[in-house]
Simulated scan of single mutants.
Amino acid sequence: MKYNKESLLLYAVTDRAWIGKQTLIEQVKDSLDGGATFIQLREKELDDGTFLDEARKMKSLCKEYNVPFVINDNIDIAIECDADGVHVGQSDMDALNVKKRLGKDKIIGVSAQTVEQAIIAQNSGADYLGVGAVFSTLTKLDADTVSFETLKQICDAVSIPVIAIGGIYDYNILKLSKSGIVGIAVVSAIFAQDNIKQSTANLLELATKMVKAE
């Protein structure tokens, strides 16, 4: 598994709200075929046994594509399935303790909404930051929005990579140009679409354009 800031260009976060004709694994495979560069498995309702079985299958799939695979919040599952890392929020365990449990070779992502949170996360050992919601989002109704100015200030304040998340779609992604982020994290912009592979490919092209904008 190769991990660097380029791996964060198009970060896909799963959501089983849109499974139906396909399983979640099939949807993730389509996103990888479309060019997703990073996968986060996010489950809030599954029992541990089912979650672990799914995580192991997804880890194996991501390994085939040489794409980093992390678990949202659940450190025990991340350890059990030997995920490449974990992503935690502000209300979860801090990055320093996560690092101690997972090991120094694992990827630790932390959600942040302010410059202060970003600096604390970096100093605690976070490898990257997920900042948002940069636009209003139906995926997380309780998420406060982060202004473009704050996003840029966070990018300027830390040396670790920053990605934006929250309400990002093909029609607004370019508004994030020149913010300093290295990529975007999306949920419904990939997994709620009829053609996941094509939607992912389109987003990858736009994300590349956005990051390269001067």
Rank of each mutant, 00 (worst) to 15 (best):
Met1Thr: 04
Lys2Gly: 06
Tyr3Ala: 05
Lys5Ile: 03
Tyr11Val: 13
Val13Gln: 01
Thr14Asn: 12
Arg16Lys: 10
Trp18Thr: 14
Gly20Ile: 12
Gly20Pro: 02
Thr23Ser: 15
Leu24Gln: 14
Gln27Gly: 15
Asp30Leu: 15
Ser31Tyr: 07
Ser31Asp: 06
Leu32Ala: 03
Asp33Pro: 03
Gly34Gln: 01
Gly34Leu: 06
Gly34Ala: 06
Ala36Val: 12
Ile39Lys: 07
Ile39Met: 02
Gln40Thr: 01
Arg42Ser: 09
Glu43Phe: 03
Glu43Pro: 06
Glu43Met: 10
Lys44Pro: 10
Lys44Val: 01
Glu45Ser: 14
Asp47Glu: 13
Phe51Gln: 15
Phe51Arg: 14
Asp53Glu: 11
Asp53Phe: 04
Glu54Gln: 14
Glu54Met: 15
Met58Gln: 13
Lys59Phe: 05
Leu61Cys: 13
Leu61Val: 10
Leu61Arg: 11
Cys62Phe: 02
Glu64Thr: 04
Glu64Phe: 01
Tyr65Glu: 09
Asn66Leu: 05
Val67Thr: 13
Val67Tyr: 07
Val70Trp: 10
Ile71Glu: 01
Ile71Ala: 15
Ile75Leu: 13
Asp76Ile: 13
Ile77Cys: 13
Ile77Gln: 06
Ile79Thr: 07
Cys81Gln: 00
Asp84Lys: 13
Gly85Ser: 12
Gly89Arg: 09
Ser91Glu: 09
Ser91Arg: 05
Asp92Trp: 03
Met93Cys: 14
Asp94Ser: 08
Leu96Phe: 09
Lys106Trp: 06
Val110Tyr: 05
Thr114Ile: 07
Thr114Phe: 03
Val115Ser: 07
Gln117Trp: 11
Gln117Ala: 15
Ala118Phe: 08
Ala118Pro: 08
Ile119Met: 11
Ile119Pro: 00
Ala121Tyr: 02
Ala126Asp: 03
Leu129Pro: 12
Val131Phe: 04
Val131Asp: 05
Phe135Asn: 11
Phe135Gln: 07
Ser136Arg: 13
Thr137Arg: 04
Thr139Phe: 10
Thr145Lys: 15
Leu151Met: 03
Leu151His: 00
Lys152Val: 01
Lys152Thr: 06
Gln153Cys: 06
Gln153Gly: 06
Asp156Met: 02
Asp156Gly: 07
Val158Ile: 14
Pro161His: 14
Pro161Val: 14
Pro161Tyr: 11
Val162Glu: 09
Val162Ser: 14
Val162Ala: 08
Ile163Glu: 01
Gly166Gln: 05
Gly167Cys: 07
Gly167Lys: 08
Tyr169Met: 02
Leu174Gly: 02
Lys175Asp: 12
Ser177Ile: 04
Ser177Leu: 06
Ser177Lys: 10
Lys178Val: 06
Ile181Glu: 10
Val182Leu: 00
Gly183Trp: 05
Ser188Met: 01
Ala189Asp: 03
Ala192Ile: 02
Asp194Ala: 14
Asn202Pro: 10
Leu203Ile: 01
Leu206Cys: 05
Ala207Ser: 14
Val211Cys: 13
